[in-house]
Design a binder for these strands. Structure first.
Lengths: 216, 216
DNA sequence: TGACAAAATGAACGAACATTCATTTAATTA
DNA sequence: TAATTAAATGAATGTTCGTTCATTTTGTCA
C-alpha cells in the first residue's frame, strides 16, 4: 500500500461537490455537463470518474448530505425547547436561518428530485419526510395540549413548511429587509396561523399564549 | 391565397402545446426532446417547426398563456368581494382551486423559469409580479382599515403565496382529504396569520373580524 | 531509490440533441 | 381542374453529451 487512500482524493472530491453544487443550482442539473464541472475544478472530465461513478451520483451525494446535515442540525437545536409554542417558534427560526444560509443546497434538493433514479429519489424523499415529521410532532403536541388550534396536523405542517421554504425563492441578502426582520415576521405569521386567539395578546378562551409572555 | 392560414395548423399547434405540457411537467424541459414532443402528436420532429420557431418558444408560450389566464380569472373573480377580509378569503379559495386544477401549468411555470432566455424570463416574471400585486393590494387595504395586523405587506404576500402554492407539491386528488377540506384549512391558516385576534372569535382590541361574522 | 497505486490526461466511443431543408402530400380556392 | 400553399416528411447538419480506457504523471511508503 503506497499512497494513503483518499489523501488528495477526498480533497478533490470535495472541490468537485462544490463546483457541481454551484453549477447545478445556477443552471439546473440537466443543463450542466461533466466537462463544465471538471473545468470548475481544473480537471479533465475523465478525472471526475475517479471520485464519482456517474453524474447522477454527484447530485445524489449533494442531496443526501444536505438532508442529513439539516436533520442533524435540528436534532441538536430542538433540545432547547420545552413547550410546543417555544418549539414551533424555534423551528421557524431554525428553518429560516438554516435554509437561507444554504440556498444552493436547498434549491437543488427541491428542484432536481425528478432527475434522480428511483432508488435515490426514494432515499431523499424519505429524509425529507423525516424532517417534516419534526414539525408534525410539534404541532401534534401543541394541538393535544390546547396551545394550538389545528384542523389537520399533517396539512398544517405542509402549509407551514411551504411558507418558510418559499423564503428562498425571493429573499436576497442586502435587500430592503434583514434576515432577522423577515424571521420576526414569519414567526408572527406562523404562530398566528395555528394559535387560536392570535399571538400578541391573550384571548378569552385562555388557550392562547403571547409569544413574549411568560406563561408556558 | 389557398388554404385558410392556420385552419388545421392551429389545431395541430394546440396538440403540440398539450403534449409538450405533459412532457415538460413530467420530466422537465431540459430532459424532453423535440422528437418526444413530436411523437406525442404523431409527427416527425421537423414538423414542429411549422408551428413554433424553437423548443423554448413552446415553453414560453405555455407559461405566458398560463399566467395571463390566471390573471384574467382573478380579475373576474375579484369583483365579488367588498371587504379586505372577504377578498383575502376569496383569494385563498381562488388560488387554491385554480392552481390545483392546472397542476402541470403551475409546475412548469415555477420550475422551468431558469430555462428561459432573458427576454422571456422578464416577461413571465413580470406577469407573476402582477399577480402577486393583487394579494398585496388586498393586504394593504386590510392593514389600512385595521382588519389585518401585518408587519410588512410585501413579505406577508410572499409568505401566503408560497403557503398556498405549496399545496401543489403534495396534494393529490383521491387522497385522505378533498379539495374542499384543504381549502377550509388553508383559509383558516391564512386568515389567522394576518388577523390580529385570530379568526374564530372577536378579541378585545376590536379590530379583528370573525370570518363568519357580519361586521365589515 | 524503486515499487506501487492513486490520480489525471486526452483521445475516443456511440448516442442523442435542436435545427435545417429539399421534397412530397394534401387541403383549399379561383 | 389547376394553381397555390400550408403542413408534413425524412434525411442530414454539426454539436454536445456521459462515459470509457490506455497511458502518463505524481505522491507515498518500503
Amino acid at each position: 500500500m503506497a499512497r494513503k487512500a483518499g489523501s488528495v482524493g477526498e480533497e478533490t472530491a470535495e472541490r468537485v461537490r462544490l463546483a457541481a453544487l454551484k453549477l447545478f443550482a445556477g443552471k439546473g442539473y440537466a443543463a450542466v455537463s461533466m466537462r463544465e464541472i471538471a473545468a470548475g475544478v481544473g480537471l479533465q472530465a475523465g478525472a471526475l470518474y475517479n471520485h464519482f461513478p456517474t453524474k447522477q451520483a454527484i447530485l445524489a451525494d449533494l442531496m443526501v448530505a444536505h438532508m442529513e446535515a439539516l436533520i442533524a442540525a435540528w436534532e441538536v437545536e430542538s433540545r432547547k425547547f420545552a413547550t410546543p409554542v417555544a418549539a414551533l417558534e424555534g423551528f421557524v427560526r431554525f428553518h429560516i436561518r438554516y435554509h437561507l444560509s444554504r440556498g444552493d443546497e436547498v434549491f437543488i434538493s427541491y428542484m432536481e428530485l425528478r432527475n434522480l433514479e428511483p432508488e435515490n429519489f426514494v432515499r431523499i424523499e424519505g429524509l425529507r419526510k423525516y424532517y417534516e415529521g419534526f414539525l408534525r410532532k410539534i404541532l401534534q403536541a401543541g394541538a393535544a395540549s390546547g396551545s394550538f388550534s389545528i384542523a389537520d396536523v399533517p396539512v398544517a405542517a405542509m402549509a407551514l413548511i411551504a411558507m418558510l421554504t418559499g423564503l428562498n425563492t425571493w429573499f436576497r441578502a442586502g435587500g430592503r429587509l434583514s434576515v432577522d426582520e423577515v424571521e420576526e415576521i414569519y414567526v408572527k405569521m406562523a404562530l398566528g396561523s395555528v394559535m387560536p386567539g392570535g399571538i400578541m395578546q391573550g384571548s378569552s378562551d385562555g388557550a392562547a399564549r403571547g409569544l413574549t409572555a411568560a406563561g408556558s
